[in-house]
């Protein structure tokens, strides 16, 4: 680990070291998990939900901090890049947006499940599935390979 390596925010939507964010951050990057009980209180999480989440985090053998993500990430990163899986959860998204003010924030997507045009009709599931099916039925390897080909074509 060198002072130039980044840190990885392992948040509650991506409690894994197999997520591509870890490889993208490089071997020297430090993954950390942050336990924010105020957020759990606000969401009304029961003890069993909290225990499950804690166990998943504990399983990774990474440092677990307790407190508010914004301040802990700032302090631990201390100017270094922060890698994280993007999330639609406003709680996570807001933290990442806020950190962009004074840090390099690098979002890294999960391995793709399907390739879906952005203008797909999402009003009902089956219209979505009819389009997603073609690539969702490919293995991730095939899907990634075909993604690269279509990028090259473009």
């Amino acid at each position: 680990m060198s002072v130039n390596d980044g840190i990885i925010w392992v948040h509650e939507d991506a409690i894994s070291l197999d997520h591509p964010v870890v490889a993208a951050a490089g071997p020297g990057a430090q993954p950390i998990f942050i336990w924010d009980s105020h957020n759990h209180d606000a969401l009304g999480y029961s003890l069993k939900r909290r225990v499950f989440i804690f166990e998943c985090a504990l399983d990774l053998d990474i440092p677990i901090y307790a407190g508010t993500p914004k301040s802990i990430l700032r302090e631990v990163a201390n100017g270094r890049a922060i890698y994280a899986a993007p999330s639609p959860d406003p709680y996570i998204a807001h933290v990442l947006i806020d950190l962009q003010k004074d840090h390099e924030v690098v979002p890294v997507d999960a391995r793709p499940f399907a390739r879906i045009a952005s203008d797909v009709d999402t009003r009902r599931f089956f219209r979505f599935w009819n389009q997603a099916k073609k690539t969702a039925m490919l293995s991730t390897q095939e899907l990634e390979a075909s993604q690269n080909t279509s990028r090259d074509d473009a």
């Binding site: 009980s37 759990h40 499950f52 989440i53 998943c56």
Partner: peptide, 26 residues
């Protein structure tokens, strides 16, 4: 683990004492 979670969740009502048989790990 349960004791630690309680310790780190000071506002969690003590009446809530159920823990799932499903364990969180890869």
């Amino acid at each position: 683990v349960i004791a630690k979670v309680r310790d780190l969740s000071p506002n969690l009502a003590s009446v809530d004492d159920q823990v799932s048989p499903i364990v969180g790990s890869k």
